[in-house]
Design a protein around this nucleic acid. Structure first.
Lengths: 191, 191, 191, 191
DNA sequence: CATGAATGAGAGTTCATTCAT
DNA sequence: GATGAATGAACTCTCATTCAT
C-alpha cells in the first residue's frame, strides 16, 4: 500500500499540473501550489524543495506514460496503418486542447536550467515514431520515406502547432490539414 | 534628426532584444534592462512603463521587417524556385541560432496578455508563404500541392524546430532534413 | 487564549497609533510601521495589506471604545450635571494632549478614500451628546437649549480646537474658555 | 509693470491652489504642479525650490487678503450688527464650499514643519473677531459677552466645521445652526 | 533662461524559505 | 511531522532634483 506521504505527493502533482499547463513554469510560485493543494508552506516544502523539483516530478510521470506507446501494438502485430490512425487521432485531439498542454511550461523550465534536459524526452518521441515508420515500411503499408526526415517533421510540426494554438486563434481545419499531411506522406492509398 | 529620446528608445530596444531572446519574457525584469542599457530605473521607466510595453515595441519592429518579404521578389518576376531557395537558406540559418530567436519570449508574452495578440503575426507569415506557393504553382515550378496544408506545415514545423532547438541538442542534420522536406514537397526536379 | 497572530496584530496597532497621531496619515509608510514594530516587511504585510487598512483597524478600535459612553451613566440615573462635568474634564484633558490626537490622521485618511467614511463616527458623537443634552433638559438640570444647535457647536468647536492646537501655540486658557462656554450654555446655576 | 517672472509666479500659485485644496499638502508633488501649470520641471524649479516654499507663498497671499477685514468697516462707523451679519453670511458661504478650503493642506503643511508656523494666522483671526465683538459691545449692539471666550468659540467651531464638512455628509442645517448660535450669543434682539 | 532626459533614493509589494510551536 | 508567522531579498514604480542641451 502506498504511504500517506506518497499519496500526498501524488495529490500535489495532480493539483500542480493544471497550474503549470495554464500559466507556464516561471509564473507559478510555491505559494500558488500551496493555495491549489490546500497545504501549508511547510507542508509543501517537506515534499518538494522548490517548483523546479516539483515540475521535474511531473515530467517524470509524463515520460513514464509516453514510453508505453506503440511497442505493445507493434509487438502484437497490429497493422501499422491502424496504429498510425490511432496515433493521429490522439494527436489531433491533443491539438484541440492547448490548455492541457505543458508545452509552454516545458520550454520555460528547460530555459531556466542550464543544460539541455529535454534530450531524453526528444529521444523517446523520436524512437517511437521512427520505429513505427520503419515498421510500416517493412510491412509495405507505408511509403518508403526518409525515416529521419519524416520523424523530425512529425515531431516538430506537432510541437509547433501545440505551441501556437495556445496563443493564436487556430481553427480545427489547421489541425486536420497537418494530420492529413502526415497521413498522406505515409499511406499509399491516400495518394 | 531623430530626437535624443528617440535614439535612447532605439538603444533600449537593441539592448533588450538579446535579453528576451536568451531568457524569455517572464524572467526579464526592468532592472535587467536597466543593467543592460546602463540607464537608471527612472530613466528607463520614462521610456517604457513596463516589460510588456517594451516587448511590444520590439515585436512591432520585427513585424515591420517581416512584412517586406517575398512581395518585391514576386513583383520583380524572380523565379519561385529562387525565392524559395533563398527563403529556405535563411530559415536554416535561423534554425542554427536558437539564441537569437524570440520564440520563447513570444510564447510567454502571449500567454501573459489576455487574448490572441499574435494573430497578426501568424497571418503575415501565412500570407507570405501562401502567396509564394501559389506563385510557384502558377509558374509551374512547384507541384500543385494543397496550399493551405503545406503552408501550415511549413509555418509550424519551423516554429517547432526553433522552439525545441532551444532546449535540446539538435544537430544540423535535423535542420537540413526539415528544409529538405519542404523543398521536396514543392520542387518537381527534386523528386 | 488569543492566537499569536491576534496578539501581533494588536501589537502593531498599538505601535502604529502614536505614529499616525504624530505624523498624520499620509506621511506614515509601511516601512515606518515596520521600524516601529520591529517586524519585517513581509511580516507586517501578512497582517495588513497597507496603511489604509491598518489605519481602519485603529479607527474600529477607537469607535468601539467611543460607543460605550454616557449610555451606562444615564441608564444608571446619574445626574446630567455630573455626567457633563466628567465629560468636559475629559475633553479638556484631551485638548491638552494634541500629540495623542488622531485628528490630522483622520482628516488625511478620510480625504484619501473616495467617500464619506466618517459618517458613522460623526453620528456616534452626535447621538452621544444629543442624548445627554436631552437627558439634562428632561431632568431640568440643563437649559432648554436647541439640542441640534448646541450639539453641533460642541462637536465642531472640540474638533476645531483639537486640530488647531496641533499647529499653533495654544494656552490652557483657550481650552478652559471653550469648556466654560459649553458649561454656561447648559447649566442653570452657572449663569 | 509686473515682470514676466512675476506673472508666471502668480500663474503657478493660481494653478496650485485648487490642487492643495483638493488633495491636501502631502499628496501634491512638484510633478503634479508641472502638469497643472504646463511648465517643465526645470521651469517650475526656477520659481520655487519645492512644494513647501510654493505653499508658503500661497499662504502669504491668503494672509494678505484676510488682514483687510473689518478694520475699514469699523473705522467707517458701520453698525456692528451689519458687519456681523456680513461676516456670518460669508462664513456660511465658505462652509458650503469645503472643496475650496485649504484647511487640510494647512494642517498637513503645519505638521510637516517643525515649529508652529500658524501663530500669525491665528492671531490675525483672533484680533479680527475680538475687535469686532468689543466694537459691538461698546456700541451696545452686542451682549456684554466674554470676548476671549466667544472669539475662541467662533474661531474653532468654524475651523471644525470646515474640516469635517470635507469628510462627512453635512447638511446646510448644520451650517445655519452654527451661524445661528454665534448670532444668538451676540445679538440682543435674537433672544 | 527654459527644457525634459536622466539620476537615484526610497516606497510598495511579493515570495522563496526558515523555524518556533 | 505539519503549521503558518516571520524574514529578507528582489522587483515594480514614483518623484525630487539635477544638468546637458
Amino acid at each position: 500500500m502506498t504511504s500517506k506521504k506518497e499519496r500526498t505527493r501524488e495529490m500535489i502533482l495532480e493539483a500542480a499540473y493544471p497550474l503549470f499547463a495554464k500559466e507556464g513554469f516561471n509564473k507559478i510560485t510555491m505559494k500558488d501550489i500551496c493555495d491549489a493543494t490546500g497545504l501549508s508552506r511547510g507542508g509543501l516544502y517537506s515534499h518538494f524543495p522548490g517548483t523546479k523539483e516539483l515540475f521535474e516530478a511531473i515530467l517524470v510521470r509524463i515520460q513514464e506514460k509516453e514510453e508505453m506507446n506503440f511497442q505493445k501494438e507493434m509487438a502484437a502485430g497490429m497493422s501499422a496503418t491502424e496504429i498510425l490512425e490511432k496515433a493521429l487521432s490522439l494527436m489531433e485531439e491533443e491539438m484541440k486542447q492547448p490548455d492541457e498542454s505543458l508545452s509552454l511550461a516545458i520550454y520555460e523550465y528547460a530555459g531556466s536550467v542550464s543544460q539541455p534536459v529535454m534530450n531524453d524526452f526528444t529521444q523517446i518521441g523520436f524512437d517511437k515514431w521512427s520505429s513505427l515508420i520503419q515498421y510500416g515500411i517493412k510491412r509495405k503499408e507505408f511509403h518508403s520515406v526518409d525515416v529521419f526526415e519524416l520523424t523530425n517533421v512529425i515531431l516538430y510540426v506537432y510541437q509547433g502547432v501545440r505551441m501556437w494554438s495556445r496563443i493564436t486563434d487556430m481553427t480545427p481545419a489547421v489541425f486536420s490539414s497537418i494530420i492529413n499531411h502526415i497521413r498522406k506522406e505515409l499511406l499509399r492509398n491516400e495518394e
